[in-house]
């Protein structure tokens, strides 16, 4: 169809550059790209929520009674944790997406533009936030249907989701760095899950650490995922201490401070 007509009849207008946009405007454009991608590839939602839904159903009905006396009691304990797990696992996908983009040469174009260097990553983060909120919302809805009730009501849920976004933002840097270092998206995923599985399972997401051996319990106690889960649980039930929340925010803050410069360095060095 297209090869039959000779292409290119550009009427060359000399188009001048408009005033340079702000860094924030650059970042928002990349955020818009993330939204568009969501619209064009809605299937990615399926990848994001199926595993946590299965986890919720299996743990609640298979192990719930044994772990907490009844499935209903267990769900009340487990749901905030599965939200944390979902956000952690979702962060892997942004690393994979970045790796794919880099492989296609798309970032070469972005890098040859006179824009804020970190803007493409800020855009990835916007996409992440969107993914976290949508996936978290679906999991919460499933939980509500199964009988989960957040004692702190809507303010608690909003607080918990803000916490989840902060965590996703922090975790995101790990996978952006992996995406910049590793060449193939599937390797990014494997490397990501290798880091995540011990962090997520050796935490207080699934069970109270009371029955664990001492050495493991001391690890679980300082595992950032545990601290985060405690804070999210506290926010949803209305029993969060300010200290819990502050402690939970240490990891994402530290990750951002440590890895944002690394990201920029890796990106410019490529």
């Amino acid at each position: 169809m297209t090869s039959s007509t000779p292409p290119f009849r550009p009427a060359f207008r000399n188009v001048q550059r408009p005033p340079a946009p702000s860094a924030l405007s650059n970042a928002l454009v990349f955020g818009w790209r993330a939204v568009l991608k969501f619209r064009h590839v809605p299937e990615q939602l399926f990848d994001l929520v199926m595993t946590p839904i299965m986890f919720t159903l299996l743990f609640t009905f298979v192990f719930g009674g044994a772990l907490a006396g009844s499935p209903a009691d267990y769900l009340q304990f487990f749901l905030p944790g599965i939200l944390v797990q979902t956000v952690c696992f979702n962060a892997v996908y942004s690393g994979m997406g970045l790796c794919t983009d880099l492989g296609q040469g798309l970032f070469d174009r972005f890098r040859s533009l006179p824009i804020w260097s970190l803007a493409p990553f800020a855009g990835l983060m916007v996409g992440d936030v969107l993914r976290h909120v949508i996936a978290g919302g679906i999991i919460l809805a499933v939980g509500l249907i199964l009988g989960y009730r957040p004692e702190a009501g809507i303010p608690g849920v909003v607080g918990a989701f803000l916490m989840l976004i902060a965590i996703g933002f922090g975790m995101g840097w790990i996978f952006i760095v992996l995406g910049l270092i590793i060449r193939t998206p599937t390797t990014v995923m494997t490397a990501g899950f290798t880091v995540l599985f011990p962090l997520v399972f050796a935490s207080n997401i699934m069970v109270e650490p009371a029955t664990m051996p001492d050495w493991l319990r001391s690890i679980v106690a300082v595992n950032p995922v545990s601290l985060i889960t405690t804070a999210v649980r506290g926010l949803m039930s209305g029993q969060a201490a300010a200290g819990d929340v502050a402690l939970a925010l240490v990891a994402p803050l530290a990750l951002t401070l440590a890895l944002a410069p690394v990201t920029l360095w890796l990106y410019r060095r490529r």
Binding site: R17, P21, W32, H40, L106, F107, R109, L113
Partner: peptide, 26 residues
């Protein structure tokens, strides 16, 4: 710069790709 390999977002439409760049230019 137009690189050796198409530096386009495959998931987006042609129009969206150009709008994206136009916005980045200001």
């Amino acid at each position: 710069m137009t690189g050796q390999f198409a530096s386009l977002d495959e998931d987006l439409t042609g129009r969206e790709n150009l709008i994206l760049l136009a916005r980045l230019w200001g």
